[in-house]
């Protein structure tokens, strides 16, 4: 399928941990098929944070969750440690689970209200303890690492604040020494001062435990702060992939530029086409480039032919027929 391409995959790099190729996720609903993710490819290098950014409905969350097979992709491959996860049976997949963890958006809903905090964090140890490489000290160590006093282990989640609950979630995700953690909007429900604590904590944990993160957010400033590499998505497609600083300095896709111009405090003007154009339906997406209905630079080719991802210099890739190379958007705050 055109429009996707794999130019941005780093196949030469021996440290590639996860390689996703041409992943498609579709859901059937009564009024048709929702094309949530349509042929997305990306890879994650060990110890790297990949940020996925886009507006609601762009498929960023589905993409990340499909990496850990929740839900299983409709087609495409997800290679982890040389195994294609999409080909695994349920029980084989369960055995790989400890390596692929997740942190959720809602810190309250992601903790069982009827269990104690040490129970929650220790659940992974209970299930996989037979492997024999973890001791109960692990619990105390982790709780201290994420900033929860181990003495509070017997408390229930409702006795903690939202930020603390998110720390507990992080400890639970780390307890099995995973290789990859999917972070699905982990700071969106938190106050700004708490958000900073959690972002710093994630950076520290990444250094300390050498884990790779897939970080999903709609907030560009957060994405820039935490990510090494950023992937911008629109309607189930990849728009642009680049290093975080590079992407913000030279956004090449018109959608990326519109996003950046919309950052509160930015003085840049959002093109009228972004404002007037409604987000098209994911059941019946536009032909050609999916952004053509709102793009200020759209021409006939954009409506008929889907662009493939191509390098626009260095480790910077964009899927656009008319990438913007002129003056960068000034991002100020």
């Amino acid at each position: 399928m055109a429009g996707t391409g794999t130019a941005h995959l780093r196949d030469g790099d021996p440290n590639v941990l996860v390689r996703v190729e041409d992943m498609v996720v579709e859901f059937s609903i009564s009024s048709g098929t929702v094309h949530a993710v349509s042929g997305v490819s990306f890879d994650i290098v060990a110890g790297e944070t990949l940020g996925i950014v886009g507006e609601s409905g762009c498929g960023k969350s589905t993409t990340a969750r499909a990496v850990i097979q929740m839900p299983r992709p409709t087609s495409g491959s997800v290679t982890f440690n040389g195994t294609d996860l999409t080909q695994l049976g349920n029980e084989e997949l369960r055995k790989v689970r400890p390596d692929l963890q997740m942190i959720f958006q809602d810190p309250i809903s992601s903790l069982n209200p009827r269990r104690t905090v040490s129970d929650i964090i220790g659940e992974g140890l209970r299930v996989w303890g037979a492997r024999g490489q973890w001791t109960s000290d692990r619990l105390d160590e982790l709780m201290e690492a994420v900033g929860i006093d181990p003495r509070f282990g017997e408390r229930k989640p409702h006795q903690f604040s939202g930020g603390q609950c998110q720390r507990i979630s992080i400890a639970r995700a780390l307890v099995l020494d995973p290789k990859v953690i999917i972070c699905d909007e982990p700071v969106s429900a938190l106050d700004v001062s708490v958000q900073a604590q959690i972002l710093n904590l994630l950076e520290d944990m990444k250094q300390r435990y050498g884990v790779s993160l897939v970080f999903i957010s709609h907030d560009l400033s957060v994405i820039k702060n935490i990510s090494d590499r950023v992937m911008v998505m629109y309607m189930g497609k990849v728009c642009e992939v680049a290093g975080a600083d590079d992407l913000f300095a030279r956004p090449a896709h018109h959608y990326t530029r519109a996003l950046m111009a919309s950052i509160p405090g930015s003085k840049a003007v959002v093109e009228a086409s972004m404002i007037e154009g409604e987000l098209p339906s994911a059941i019946n997406p536009p032909t050609g480039c999916r952004f053509n209905t709102r793009c200020p630079a759209a021409t006939d080719i954009c409506r008929s032919e889907e662009p493939t991802i191509e390098a626009v210099g260095g480790d910077h890739y964009v899927a656009c027929h008319h990438p913007a190379t002129e003056t960068p958007v000034t991002v100020e705050s």
Partner: peptide, 17 residues
């Protein structure tokens, strides 16, 4: 539907459990 159930699945807890 709540996320702690998803979280348990991610940890590899068996369905019955």
């Amino acid at each position: 539907d709540r996320e702690f159930v998803k979280a348990a699945e991610v940890l590899g807890v068996k369905k019955g459990s």
